[in-house]
Design a protein around this nucleic acid. Structure first.
Length: 490
RNA sequence: CGGGGCGUAGCGCAGCUUGGUAGCGCGCUUGGUUCGGGACCAAGAGGCCGGAGGUUCAAAUCCUCUCGCUCCGACCA
């Protein structure tokens, strides 16, 4: 049954693809079609880079507004740190440099001269920020330091994919310093929870919070936590991360403070981030054969009014929709599409492709009865509503849709989550329909790597509060120590 | 970096086997009729056939070299 569902959604994707580009056939082409057709982005002259066009950037701005708001509410201030990092700084933390070395971009010349010390373009800002922190922090009174920055970073990846993995991407990175280990751990988990809450309530993307394995953790971290989401093609995506950095960076960057007990101590640090990858997740989780679906809270345009203009009733209909737009603009984010050079059918397709949650149709027939037709983007359901009812009905409808979209994404994830101790079955699942696989694990890297070799699936996370029913490791069959989710990932 | 595929109009492609001076769909422009699920008719505009060299009376087409893109494998938010 679950396989059925998988096939169905793949077939739907193919149909959409046929409609907009007859020659394309697979899911990844569907994804590319959606982002190009909706004018979210365009490829750049440099491989792996892209321009984010206004329609795509509007989603990022929503993330900045809603998530950025939460980051501030939780006590963090925004700041900005330099793009260039002296090579020596990056090299201070051994694991860190080793983790990022293959993918850093170097600047070797400046002002026409060869630089005495090459610079790296930040792949992440721990090194440069720690350098500042070591001077900013002297006393326990300076703690905690709770800073966030919105910026771009560069990672020279071997294979790229728009939004999900680009050579340059925009993100938000929080960098905090604390007096104690407990405080740092609490901060790490608090921000993970901020991400979980944001993804589920605003983006309608259900996620699994958990801890990364040693193999998968951030280079230089003590512990890495993650929120993992399942895309509609059965692959998992790390939607956000939060790291407890321990004292590794504090030690090499010499970030110390005089504590109340008269002892010189190293700070305990955290860092956490989400990126423009979330835009990709939004598309892949909710999109269908007609294009994009935006959850109402993320939509810049929540409802679009499409007038049906005929020769006889043109003026009356235009008058009515203009009045309606004026009346509704303080209630929902509304757009009146009164362009006369496009037919109504063309506009329906256009706005459906762009994912606008609700379409409001108003034509001569409706005008006579003082009503409009509402059409939901998520499930296509139409309803007729009296114009007088609209100010009350519309916000309720949007909230219903917000809930329904989360529910249907959740139902999809549940339908595509498998479990069991049969390794052969695990291999079959990962080969065919993919999805998540909940299993027990002995905790040895050897088994983790064997699974990866056999199936390309990695341990996405060790979830909180979820226990497998099986006592033995999926891979080796020995006594298990952890419950984990396996999946192929982006 | 190893293996495949592709460069022809803004986009997607045909033409190449068997050389004869470039075509289709979408889009674009203009005019008209339309508008309750991507409207129709008519008239247009737009191409050093990725680049360089060679063979030939003649090259998108054959040969050599080159550049770029893309998919699959090793790394990653």
């Amino acid at each position: 049954m679950e396989q059925q569902a998988g096939r169905e959604s793949a077939a739907q994707s193919k149909e959409f693809v046929k409609e907009i580009t007859p020659q394309a056939v697979d899911y990844s082409q569907w994804y590319i079609d959606v982002i190009l057709k909706t004018e979210m982005m365009d490829y750049a002259p440099v491989k792996g880079c892209m321009a984010i066009r206004p329609f795509g950037f509007a989603i990022w701005e929503k993330i900045q507004e809603l998530l950025g708001g939460r980051i501030k509410e939780t006590g963090h201030d925004n700041a900005y740190f330099p793009l260039f990092i002296p090579q020596a700084l990056l090299q201070k933390e051994a694991e860190h440099v080793e983790g990022f070395a293959p993918e850093v971009a170097w600047v070797t010349r400046g002002g026409g001269e060869v630089l005495a010390e090459p610079l790296v373009v930040r792949p992440t800002s721990e090194a440069i920020i720690c350098d500042f922190y070591s001077r900013w922090i002297q006393s326990w009174r300076d703690l905690p330091v709770l800073i966030n920055q919105w910026c771009n970073v560069v990672r020279w990846e071997k294979s790229t994919r728009p939004f999900l993995r680009t050579s340059e991407f925009l993100w938000q990175e929080g960098h905090t310093c604390h007096r104690t280990e407990d405080e740092a751990e609490a901060e790490t988990l608090k921000m993970l929870e901020v991400y979980r809450e944001f993804l589920e309530t605003q983006m309608a993307i259900p996620v699994i919070p958990g801890r990364k394995t040693e193999q998968e953790k951030f280079a230089g971290a003590l512990r890495t936590y993650t929120v993992e989401a399942l895309m509609s093609d059965g692959r998992a995506l790390q939607a956000g991360t939060s790291h407890n950095l321990g004292q590794h960076f504090a030690q090499v960057f010499d970030i110390t403070f005089m504590d109340q007990d008269d002892q010189l101590k190293h700070v305990w640090q955290t860092s956490w981030g989400v990126s423009t990858r979330l835009i990709g997740a939004l598309i892949m989780v909710h999109g269908d054969d007609r294009g994009l679906k935006l959850p109402p809270r993320m939509a810049t345009i929540q409802a679009v009014i499409v007038p049906i203009l005929s020769k006889k009733a043109r003026e009356e209909v235009l008058g009515a929709v203009r009045a309606l737009a004026e009346q509704l603009k303080s209630i929902v984010r509304i757009k009146l599409d009164d362009r006369e050079e496009y037919s109504p059918g063309w506009k329906y397709n256009e706005w459906e492709m762009k994912g606008v949650p609700v379409r409001i149709e108003l034509g001569p027939r409706d005008l006579e009865k003082n009503q409009v037709v509402l059409v939901r983007r998520d499930n296509g359901v139409k309803e007729t509503v009296a114009i007088a009812e609209l100010p009350a009905r519309l916000p309720l409808l949007l909230e219903e849709m917000q809930r329904d979209m989360l529910q249907s994404a959740l139902a999809f994830r549940e339908a595509h989550t498998h479990t069991g101790s049969d390794y052969r079955y695990f291999q079959e699942v990962m080969e065919n329909e993919r999805g998540l696989y909940l299993a027990s694990w002995c905790g040895r890297e050897e088994c983790e790597l064997k699974a990866k070799n056999d199936t390309k699936a990695t341990i996405r996370c060790i979830p909180f509060n979820i226990k497998s029913e099986h006592e033995n490791c999926l891979v080796c069959g020995e006594k298990a120590r952890e419950t984990v989710y396996f999946a192929r990932s982006y």
